[in-house]
């Protein structure tokens, strides 16, 4: 064996298996790897419970959320009414799950609208000649600097009639500017990238580039913002409803449930304020955590300082 060790074997030598096994033992464990790959499992589970619970609320709701039990209005939480009742005698626990549907629906609808608008607007601006691009971007900048809620209030005033669709539309149509800006920057960047130039040199048409190169790249860039948009849409809906310019009382959502908060304050009925709010905040925190996990880190590099 000892003599063979010093034989000239060259690059393509397969060492005996026993050697390889020894080296495997010597290799360190991947303890650190775990710390980095932390995923928001808790947020995901909690969000899943909330969403599934809202979707299938008929299966376990103890009361009819719409039924006004006038005998038991502003009832404290107890065994019968787990989270108490509101000033109109509706069971809060049932309302929470039932109303969650509407809140989530509005969140997704509004996001869908704003994402679509943003992609179209951003892509057009990114592909447009300089002057048009500048014009469009000035427009988004101004839109961005106007407080979102004021715009929504204004639009809501114009539309008048409030229902789930109109409120989703209003929230969606006012919340696309920041996504559009990112889409536009990405499109500009990708458009000037070498792989698109290469593709064009090979004779690729506009749609080929759009489908194969632009879309996959900018979609990953805006994922975080889209998720955050769901969050702010739900937030806007609740704020609007609370202020009385959103959904009316008889359409139950987390926001409209809080409309009665004024009366609750007077009577000290804390449960009417706390429970819907906790649900709302829990959902939003979960969505934020999931969104942050999607976000591309700061280049993944380490600080130099």
């Amino acid at each position: 064996m000892e003599d063979k060790l010093f034989e000239l074997v060259g690059a393509a030598y397969a060492p005996p298996l026993s050697w390889a096994e020894e080296s495997r033992k010597a290799a360190g464990s991947g303890k650190l790897a775990k710390r980095y790959s932390k995923k928001p499992a808790l947020s995901f589970c909690l969000l899943a419970v909330i969403v599934l619970g809202c979707l299938g609320c008929e299966l376990f709701m103890p009361k009819d959320p719409l039924y006004m039990d006038l005998a038991n209005y502003s009832h404290r939480p107890d065994k019968e009414f787990w989270f108490g009742t509101d000033t109109m005698g509706r069971d809060l626990f049932s309302m929470l799950w039932y109303g969650g549907r509407i809140s989530l629906l509005i969140g997704f609808l509004a996001t869908a609208i704003s994402t679509l608008t943003a992609i179209i607007f951003g892509a057009v601006s990114g592909l447009a000649p300089g002057w048009l691009d500048m014009l469009l971007m000035r427009f988004t900048e101004i839109l961005l600097s106007v407080p979102n809620l004021l715009l929504v209030v204004l639009l809501q005033a114009v539309l008048g009639q409030v229902n789930v669709w109109s409120i989703s539309f209003v929230i969606g149509i006012t919340g696309w500017a920041s996504i559009a800006k990112v889409v536009r920057t990405e499109v500009r960047q990708i458009r000037g990238s070498e792989y698109v130039i290469a593709s064009k040199c090979m004779g690729a048409g506009f749609f080929h580039v759009l489908w194969n190169h632009l879309a996959p790249n900018f979609i990953s860039a805006i994922m975080f913002m889209v998720v955050m948009n769901v969050r702010s849409a739900i937030l806007s809906e609740s704020t609007l409803s609370f202020m009385g310019i959103g959904l009316p009382l008889d359409i139950i959502s987390w926001g409209s449930m809080l409309t009665l908060a004024d009366q609750a304050l007077l009577s000290g009925a804390w449960w009417m304020i706390v429970f819907p709010g906790v649900f709302l905040v829990a959902t939003l925190v979960c969505i934020t955590n999931l969104g942050s996990a999607l976000k591309r880190g700061v280049g993944g590099s380490e600080s130099n300082l």
């Binding site: 063979k4 060790l5 010093f6 034989e7 000239l8 074997v9 060259g10 690059a11 030598y13 060492p15 050697w19």
Partner: peptide, 10 residues
Amino acid sequence: NEFALAIDYK
């Protein structure tokens, strides 16, 4: 390494 010896792998 074209001049690798067996011991190089060990």
